[in-house]
Design a protein around this nucleic acid. Structure first.
Lengths: 332, 332
DNA sequence: AGCGTAAATGTAACCGGTTACATTCGCCAC
DNA sequence: GTGGCGAATGTAACCGGTTACATTTACGCT
């Protein structure tokens, strides 16, 4: 206790409690199989010695790391951090730590420092991928721990998937515009190859084609405020009466761009976003949008990973979305 | 290579390369001291066997974890995630992983699942604390790895600190309002005991008292959009001509609240925020604010941690801030 | 050739737990 | 008393690397 010499090891505790190291170990990992008497003795000795378990030893023996790796395209993006919060919550309850890696920050292909090095059983017990732009081949090695894709995804990655019902969300949004009499609808999309853009475009198409319509234009953005603002000129040129944006940030950016150009939302142009980020309600004009429960998405991803780790079959889970009505759409 | 039996170990590589395990190990950890010939042989054998180093074994032997823990008050808050991005960047270059823990999510005092369990050398090689509300006692145990506080802080925690020049930022902001003729200035502050609130209040006091003034009122908020909006009524009652807000989110929230109440920014009330979050430029009225470089703050925190780990003295670093002029302030 | 020194390599202990397997203990039935 | 059985415990091997220390090798110098 008072000796500052070296941290007590399991052996010291055992000696003090008058039992073997195995018994001490069992008190930690499987208390039920040790007798009341020894358990008390060990617990007392633990307190007296100030023993804390060294996780490294355990991990080595059990060949597990005690941590799950999340691969995020951009850590600074609030959209992802809320998903992370959900992941973190579930992992913590399972006694696992959360490792975070920003995929923008790593040299993707370097053999020594690249992503490949991380995808190894000795680095993490599982991986949650929030980045749909990674090479699926990375995750196919037999040394790769269980993988779950969340939110974005790419084909060819083994393992479970959890995603919001992107197509349905987009359909809902566009249907809402149609219901308000809009016919000239523009789609401000994300990057072309992005899986989110693709399925949202599907939803847009579905809603419009049911009425025999098509988007007056599709503009490719980058999911950022800036790219929304920069799209304003092109949007104005296409002269839609309403714009469906693939995320709220582009919608808010576009709102700023339109305002600067002297147009009013929703009087001149109606706007619908996607995600329902917190700021959507505080935008210059409170933004009508599709709500996607990001924390739940993260939680679900973590749960799927845990069940996959326990040997269950990977599955794909689609989370419902809902329309969130505010003031950026008006009837015409 | 083709045998799917069991992953190759260092021993297999050694045998194949015709050298000892020590030599193989040295090729990984200290290539310079092994001869060109053996090095080539080992590298060849590594490729042939498909060997990947098992980090667990190394970690155990070296008593290090290879990861740094970041303690965040709220993972979902973009403010923190940008700091995390900075931290992550520096750590990655140093070959360390980033572990993230949301302090809201953990039972602070539980002896078995609480925070205390994490603060142990075998869990992380270092800790970066972004939460100023934690009990300093937690970090005083001899088993606790090096600690750096970033952004928020509390007295009594050992180790380095890195923070923005909060007092100066607040002083700058208020001075800016004074320069524009404002005299009735209100301070929409953060939680009373928060270290940021305290030092920003100092800056506000310094600027005002130099002119023989004091805030017309100080309102305690919670750094959230909502708390900003909710403060609107109380603000209006105090009838200031300008408000300095302890962060941008409260400022944007307040802006919404004021607008709802029929007041115009900046015609009726001028507003200054703090942080310069990305959304500040896209607020209904682009927000004049104090810019704080969050990514740099994170990088600096990580660097301080690394140097502390290498035995250097902990130091306190204050990062400069600057005023970011937009349209939410007008002269009277 | 003989010697000294530095560089390269090998052997085996070690990091700190877990756990397979062996052993002991306690208790009951015959 | 003895055999049988399950529960509790102990012993020691094991996880997969690193590294102190011993040993060998290479090479320059007298």
């Amino acid at each position: 206790m008072s000796s500052p010499s070296r941290p007590p090891k399991i052996h010291d505790v055992a000696k003090r409690a008058g039992v073997s190291v195995a018994t001490v170990s069992r008190v930690f990992s499987n208390p039920d199989i040790v007798s009341e008497k020894s358990r008390k003795a060990v617990e007392k000795a633990v307190v007296e010695t100030g023993y804390t378990l060294n996780v490294l030893g355990r991990n080595l023996r059990q060949s597990q790391v005690g941590a799950v790796l999340a691969l995020v395209p951009n850590l600074a993006n609030p959209f992802f951090s809320e998903i992370l919060a959900g992941i973190s919550e579930v992992l913590r309850d399972a006694g696992l730590n959360l490792l975070v890696l920003d995929t923008r920050q790593v040299d993707r292909d370097s053999p020594t420092h690249g992503l490949r090095n991380y995808l190894n059983r000795s680095h993490a017990d599982g991986i949650i991928v929030l980045d749909g732009s990674l090479d699926p081949e990375l995750f196919r090695s037999p040394a790769c721990p269980p993988v779950v894709q969340a939110c974005e995804w790419s084909e060819g990655v083994p393992g479970a998937k959890v995603l919001a019902d992107n197509a349905e969300g987009a359909r809902l949004a566009v249907q809402h515009l149609l219901d308000h009499g809009h016919r000239r609808i523009l789609h401000l999309a994300g990057p072309r190859q992005n899986s989110l853009s693709v399925s949202r475009a599907e939803g847009v198409g579905a809603a419009l084609s049911a009425k025999g319509l098509a988007p007056v234009a599709t503009i490719e953005g980058a999911f950022t405020l800036r790219s929304g603002r920069e799209a304003a000129a092109e949007v104005i040129e296409a002269a839609p009466t309403a714009v469906f944006c693939d995320n709220d940030e582009m919608a808010i950016g576009l709102m700023a761009g339109l305002t600067e150009a002297g147009l009013q939302v929703p009087e001149d142009i109606s706007l619908v976003g996607f995600d329902n980020i917190e700021m959507a309600a505080y935008a210059p004009v409170p933004l009508t949008t599709v709500r996607q429960r990001r924390a739940v998405l993260g939680q679900e991803a973590a749960r799927l990973l845990l069940s996959q780790r326990d040997g269950e079959q990977p599955e794909t889970r689609v989370l419902p979305v809902e329309l969130c009505l505010r003031r950026s759409v008006r009837a015409i």
